[in-house]
């Protein structure tokens, strides 16, 4: 029996070493592909592009393309589209995704969402919006955003569950196309939770001071879980928080949330005088103590 266990351990170690070798090989390939893609972006020439043979190489190359496309933020869109067209990367990856299981499918869709896609793939990607796996639906939605925003916003409204903050931040570059924020007002005023969360993320990312009134409305609105985010966004915009409904909202919260608001106000640079108009007595003491830790000790 011990011999059997020893054989299993040896076999496992062999697989471990092989796995590490293939992983490092895949990573080296990805880094080489990143270099080739960067050279192609600077001076487009078909000779600079590597030759892709196997499926493993294709995924490694797709990782490299996604890596470069995400960091370029749509700057070299034409060159990236040529690369994707040259290898038929989008259709090949989508075919692999359709044949894969849930997590692998989500991973391939995540890679697809980061590169420029052809509009002809929209129908096939929309079918994956009905997948049972949440991650597949999210990354299929990201792919839809990469192709057509109007279709994607419709899918977002029918997403079926609330987005988390992480997922909203993942969608943000696709919604904004790495450029200035667009159409944030309808998002903030929307009754839909996902659209409102996306709107708050846009406001925080781009520091949109004009959204102050809409954020105040969210604090007085129905989405309780968004009220804290809206208050934090107002604090980051250095808005006046000494309104009655904000004071009333803070006093209604539990201790952990009140203290979190207090710490947030210190970090965003509110003075003690402003904080006294916003916070209760207990939080004022905490605020003053925290504020003093930014001041040099004399004596």
């Amino acid at each position: 029996m011990i011999a059997l266990l020893a054989m299993l351990l040896m076999a496992g170690s062999g697989v471990l070493l092989l796995g590490r070798y293939l992983s490092r090989r895949g990573m080296r390939l990805t880094y080489r592909c990143i270099r080739s893609i960067a050279e192609y972006v600077v001076a487009p020439s078909a000779e600079r592009l590597p030759h892709i043979r196997s499926g493993l190489s294709l995924v490694a190359f797709a990782e490299a393309v996604a890596f470069v496309a995400e960091r370029l933020c749509d700057e070299a869109d034409e060159q990236m589209r040529e690369i994707v067209r040259y290898y038929a990367l989008d259709s090949r990856l989508l075919l692999m995704a359709e044949r894969a299981n849930s997590t692998r499918r989500a991973y391939l869709l995540a890679l697809l969402a980061r590169m420029p896609l052809d509009a002809s793939l929209l129908r096939r990607i929309e079918k994956m919006m009905d997948d049972t796996d949440e991650d597949v639906r999210l990354y299929a939605l990201m792919c839809c955003f990469a192709i057509d925003e109007r279709v994607a916003v419709r899918h977002l409204c029918r997403f079926g569950r609330r987005l988390s903050r992480f997922e909203a931040c993942e969608l943000l570059p696709k919604v904004c196309r790495y450029a200035d924020a667009v159409a944030w007002t309808p998002l903030l005023r929307s009754e839909d939770y996902n659209l409102a969360l996306l709107g708050i993320c846009i406001v925080r990312r781009y520091s949109i001071i004009e959204s102050e009134a809409d954020l105040h409305n969210i604090i007085g609105g129905t989405h309780r879980s968004l009220q804290y985010d809206a208050l934090c966004a107002l604090a980051e915009l250095q808005c006046d928080l000494s309104t009655t409904h904000i004071r009333h909202w803070i006093q209604q919260q539990e201790t952990a949330v009140r203290h979190a608001v207090c710490r947030h106000l210190v970090r965003t640079g509110y003075s003690l005088r402003s904080a006294k108009r916003i916070l209760g007595r207990e939080e004022r003491v905490l605020f003053e103590q925290m504020l003093n830790t930014y001041k040099r000790h004399i004596g």
């Binding site: 995400e70 997590t103 989500a106 990354y139 988390s164 903050r165 992480f166 931040c169 934090c232």
Partner: peptide, 20 residues
């Protein structure tokens, strides 16, 4: 395996995710 997807997320290096 879900967290493998997070490994390729770039949003964590750009901005505070959800204000965390």
């Amino acid at each position: 395996e879900r967290s493998r997807l997070m490994a390729i997320s770039g949003s964590a290096e750009i901005d505070a995710i959800g204000g965390v």
